[in-house]
Amino acid sequence: MSLPVTILSGYLGAGKTTLVNQMLRHAQGRRFAVMVNEFGDLPIDADLIEAEGDDLIALAGGCVCCSYGDDLMAALAQMAAMRPAPDHVILEASGVALPGAIAASLGLVSGIETTGVIVLADAAQIEASLANDYISDTVARQLKAADLVVLTKGDLAGADAVAQAGTTVTRLAGDATVIRADHGRVPVEIILNPLRIALPDIGAPHGSGQGLVTSVEVPDKPLDAETYAKDLANRADVIRAKGHVQTATGLKTVQIVGAQWDVSPAPENAQPGVVVIRLQDHVEA
């Protein structure tokens, strides 16, 4: 089994700390391992901390936080060797690191699977960052590598700034999903399973964190998995779904990514239930 890793990127002040704390508060039983560049950069909310060791902080709910300093690979190997293994690693990249390069490097390590690159952008700061001679190309390269961009601090930036930032970021982020979310309020599922939705360049964010709806469907009787998956994939508001459904020939795993779908035999011990993530504000074009 590979250890899933989510890379959390974004320039200084983009809101990575807030998001991580929110995720820890809404872990819903998942044991996260949060890896930070240096402890000083990412203070975990004090009430979440249970015990502090030299190189590992024990957090509420079986989560941990460690600093990888200048040796990410060694720290990741340590995380992978932890027993019980964490359910998911959240890797907070430094403000100037290129998440695409980190993802490429993680691809070299067996037993680790990068499930997504999340890039945060401060709606009030992003234009200035992109106009700064020193860091503009770094910030642009971060956005380009994103699977999901979260436009943060919109409540502070004001509507005009958010609109402009949304346009800019969507242009730079390729086919990544771009959503707006303040105070780290993004459903954990979306962070853990981000997807590139390859929408045509609509020049605006694709939805808001609060507007994204996550629901769990448990069909009450056996059904045809292919038909079920295809129907979900055909719905324009569904951006992702994953789970297991009962069929006449046993439990099947269904996966929907945008308009693509896939059905496979379910792993042992799988429980029926499908997590569906959709855009609440979606308007049919």
Binding site: Y11, G95, V96, L98, Y134, D137
Partner: peptide, 23 residues
């Protein structure tokens, strides 16, 4: 290395920051 204009002679993209300007 981080170069100003006109950048790398062979057209390679600009290099990497190992620290943010703020830090």
């Amino acid at each position: 290395a981080r170069l100003r204009e006109p950048g790398y002679y062979n057209g390679a993209p600009n290099g990497l920051w190992y620290i943010s300007p703020e830090h």
